[in-house]
Simulated scan of single mutants.
Amino acid sequence: MKYTIDKKGFYGNFGGAFIPEMLHSNVTELQENYLGIMQEKSFQKEFRYLLKHYTGRPSPLYYAHRLSDKYHTNIYLKREDLNHTGAHKINNTIGQILMAKKLGKTRIIAETGAGQHGVATATVCALMGLECIVYMGEVDIERQKPNVFRMKMLGAEVRPATSGSKTLKDATNEAIRDWINNPLDTFYIIGSVVGPHPYPDMVARFQSVISEEMKQQMQELEGKPNPDRIIACVGGGSNAAGAYYHYLDDEDVELVSVEAGGEGIHSGRSAATSILGTEGIIHGSRTLLMQTEDGQIIEPHSISAGLDYPGIGPMHAHLIKSGRAQVLSIEDGEALEAALELSQLEGIIPALESSHALAALNYLELKENEISIICLSGRGDKDLQTYMKFMGNE
């Protein structure tokens, strides 16, 4: 079974580039050039330099002693929360801003849900002196005010998406409309392993630094490169793609994908895409998405702004459908409890997205001699308002 992308941009049945005619030149330009540019020595030198000296990589692989004791197993946390800007998103935006410069683009657009990708995009645009416009759902703007302020402080313009559920899906729609209207000078920095080919593969490659480091760190800490299990939250799924990337063909490593169950899978307010979804096309790729029988998008819900997307990256759709990855669904309340648990056991306040991955520990058969790595995709500063509300109701 092949888990990486084929020459046509598909992971099994999922992927491809289903785009309007106006975007063909942009997407084709990227398809024809991205691998060559990424392999250039000068590109890799600058990318690696910025990852180390600007982002602060490698991020630590931390043995969570008290969490391990509680679950009677061995748990490591891949500390993406310690990156500059507070999440894994910066790995990808550094790569894409360098790609944009190589292609001669002068204007950057992006979509964001929880705001972490928006902040990371605004950050690299400030670093490179490029115009930055970030689309964000009106609902997310309200629940992620600190990140909205960070983007503006970094010089970005934040444009609200006011249609649909006014969340990530709608922000993506607006960004695509902008790209159609400004095809020549604009580069769209997509925040996850979604969108038309080559975005899912390009983003996964930029994020693969996560698993590249994990292999080296495991060898150093445990005398072997492979854990027994890797656990990561999946909305679009870029942190998971990065954490899985160098282990995809190591069948002895269990991959656990954790989705947002919202208020319950069958509550009508969920974002458990791979469980509730069927095959369809969203934002330029064929994948699993939540839709009605006549193809209308079902609005997702999650307490986490970064996980309430009605689709899933095509790589993850393939991993789950092929059986390579196990999928779990975690409800809002369980994620909140897991965030509190990590905070009080390890002194680490996680993002709500990461908290879904942490809550998966309650549903897995964990053995004493096993090693599990959880990708701690982001830190909880942006979610303090939600946590304050939760703790105030205790």
Rank of each mutant, 00 (worst) to 15 (best):
K152G: 00
A110I: 09
S343A: 15
L276P: 03
E254A: 14
E142K: 15
S322R: 04
A100H: 10
H72M: 09
T112G: 07
K52Q: 12
L127K: 09
I374Y: 07
S343Q: 00
G392D: 09
Y76R: 00
E174C: 04
M218L: 08
G323A: 00
I320L: 14
A317E: 00
R66I: 02
G277D: 05
T93H: 08
T121W: 12
A271W: 06
K78L: 02
G164I: 00
F14W: 11
I282K: 09
A357L: 08
L289A: 03
S165H: 04
K70G: 01
T186C: 11
G129F: 10
G195D: 00
D381H: 09
E334G: 03
S372T: 05
N362P: 04
T292H: 06
D332L: 11
N369C: 01
G311R: 08
S165N: 10
Y3E: 04
R177E: 12
G164W: 07
V27F: 08
G311M: 10
M214D: 11
S270I: 00
K7E: 15
K321I: 02
Q326H: 15
P198K: 01
V253D: 08
M153F: 12
R79T: 08
D6W: 05
I281E: 01
G264L: 12
K382Y: 06
L342R: 03
S377W: 00
S267V: 12
I75A: 10
P20A: 11
R177V: 03
K367C: 02
T292D: 13
G9E: 12
T162D: 04
K152P: 03
Y245M: 06
K224W: 06
L23A: 13
N33F: 03
M290D: 06
S208I: 11
K152L: 08
G311W: 09
H117N: 05
R48D: 15
M315I: 10
N147H: 11
L168S: 09
C233S: 15
D170V: 08
L307C: 11
L340M: 09
K41D: 14
P300L: 07
I94L: 13
P300V: 06
D381I: 03
G264N: 04
Y76D: 11
E220A: 15
E142P: 00
S354D: 04
T186E: 03
I349D: 06
D6A: 06
K45R: 13
E370K: 11
K166R: 15
E40L: 03
Q39C: 11
S211G: 01
M315L: 14
H84Y: 06
